[in-house]
């Protein structure tokens, strides 16, 4: 029994990290159609933010979350205004431009903070472990799971219940017609990009106590995030939630019965097969074309 529970918890923890990392990407890609290859670098910057605030000012990760969200969102806002804005409807150029931005951010971090691996201290109240139905799990991992679900709920509510969300959905369906109804799509895009970047930064800060912090860390996360978004179906937040749950549980289970190397390979093979037969992803929204 405790094996089943702890395996489910492991899968949920993997899922929550995937969800955190993929959420920002899903919003940006879903709304603006920009394939943001610098997404991993936003995650990395968030982790470095947590490290910086901790070593310079002694801030706890939890205390620094809001500041990091604002800082990375601001960065996203600036990048959108200076670079991305000029590249809408030019998907190949955005891929190249965001990739270039990612490389630059990586090297800037390497030059300023150094190439050493860093770590972030676990918040003292959450450094222990808790018992759930006979299984033990890290308190911090459960906390991350809670935050991921909370952020998802928040994002989904904005999307679903606010006027801004209504505008976003309108733009997603047809930008030209939405604009002709007086929706300022440029502004909406910028806000979306900033929000997505901020969430990526938040994800980086949240995972930093569990992982090592280094300038290259973003590269693996951007791959994971794309896997989640593509499998879930672009433009579908619920799809992102579902696919991160499926991917997390599947890779946790496979890794338990074989090992992480094989789990990773099998998951990728499964995704390739699914995409072959369902190119729109598992949860494609029905859009009237």
């Amino acid at each position: 029994m405790d094996f089943v529970v702890s395996q489910i918890l492991t899968g949920l923890s993997l899922s929550s990290i995937l969800l955190l990392v993929a959420l920002g990407l899903a919003i940006i890609y879903g709304v603006t159609g920009v394939i943001n290859l610098a997404h991993g670098e936003f995650v990395m910057l968030g982790a470095y933010g947590a490290w910086l605030l901790q070593t310079q000012f002694g801030w706890n990760v939890l205390a620094s979350l809001f500041v990091i969200f604002l800082a990375i969102a601001l960065l996203g806002w600036l990048l959108e205004a200076t670079v991305i804005r000029h590249l809408y409807d030019r998907p190949l150029d955005t891929i190249l431009a965001t990739w270039g931005l990612g490389v630059m951010i990586q090297q800037i971090v390497r030059l300023t903070a150094g190439g050493e691996l860093r770590y972030v201290q676990m918040p003292p109240g959450l450094s222990g472990s808790v018992d759930i139905l006979g299984a033990t799990d890290s308190a911090y991992r459960l906390f991350v799971l809670g935050v991921a679900l909370g952020l998802f709920a928040l994002t989904w509510s904005i999307y679903r219940y606010t006027t801004f969300g209504l505008k976003l959905r309108a733009i997603t369906q047809n930008r030209a017609i939405a604009s002709s109804f007086g929706i300022n799509s440029g502004q909406a895009y910028r806000a979306t990009f900033a929000y997505g970047a901020g969430i990526a930064g938040l994800a980086g800060a949240l995972i930093s106590p569990l992982k090592s912090v280094s300038p290259e860390m973003g590269t693996t996360y951007v791959v994971d995030a794309f896997m989640v978004v593509v499998l879930g179906g672009v433009q579908s937040l619920m799809g992102t939630l579902a696919s991160s749950a499926v991917l997390g549980e599947a890779s946790g289970l496979l890794a338990y019965f074989s090992n992480d190397t094989i789990a990773k390979a099998l998951v990728l093979v499964a995704i390739v097969i699914i995409i072959r037969f369902r190119p729109q992803g598992l949860f494609a929204p029905r859009v009237r074309a």
Binding site: F3, S6, Q7, S13, T136, N259, D260, T261
Partner: peptide, 20 residues
């Protein structure tokens, strides 16, 4: 005897196995 990919950073399944 188990090997993880180079650069692997998610050990929760491995730790689960340590536990069991």
């Amino acid at each position: 005897e188990e090997y993880v990919p180079l650069g692997h950073s998610e050990f929760s399944s491995v730790i689960n196995k340590f536990r069991s």
